[in-house]
Amino acid sequence: MAYKRGTKAIPYLILGFVAAPFLIMYVGFFLRAFGEKMVLGIIPAQWGIYNFRFLWQPITWGLEQTTMWTAFGNTMFFATLSGFIVTVICMLAGYALSRVEFRGRSFFLILQLVLHAVPGQILLIAVFFLLLYIGLLHRIPGVALARAALEIPLGVWMAKGFFDGIPWDVERAAMVDGCTRLQVWYKIFLPLVKPGIAAVFIWGFLFAWHDFIYVYTLLPGTIKVMATLIQSLLATEVIDYGYLAALSLIYSIPPLSLFIFLQRALLKVPIFGGKGT
């Protein structure tokens, strides 16, 4: 179908116009991270990795000091633990909700839905007290557990979706062939939902990696993760924007690469035809 040349350019012009400030922000961000001796405040006169000196030097602000690697390691530990908890719990619950008829199933599904009405971030006060009472406040595993709980309602729906995608006939075939319920789970379901498992894990991992408010509120100032480290540096008197841009860049690499991977993994989930009743 052929259109007039003039009208065809309009979408490009509109989106280009809207995207321009953001492109300037992103490009400026890169220039700031890799540039040294800025001319007119924005154009780097010289390229270099001076801004990345935190890779081999300790980071100090005020009277405090840490290293980038400690914070990075803490973030990795926090996010991996949280992702792991989310995956195990969501996969088990998702299977049960998708396949097993049990008392309270509907109630549980509705509960998971209604919980969306109360976002975790506004329950922070209560979570603070809860962790305090069970002795897990100010510890990464405790905060990871609390953070994982936030992703469970949506994660369970997601996992349920993956299991719903496997036809009942495949499960029935396995049972006719001699599988017990448990064997069906690890011989048939697990291999088929592998991409789903990856997706749920990455989901849990990413949200924990991105988290700011939970770690900021529930971890003490002495345990720094990347998010709170950057925030601390932003809150100092003299801000070195180049240094912060470089640090932010390092912090953003894992999620950016995972987002690309997640997209592919989600596309790989097998899709079946047939009656599927």
Binding site: P167, D169, V170, R172, A173, L192, P270, G274
Partner: peptide, 8 residues
Amino acid sequence: FQSYALYP
């Protein structure tokens, strides 16, 4: 089965 239900 109608859809054969082979293990993919």
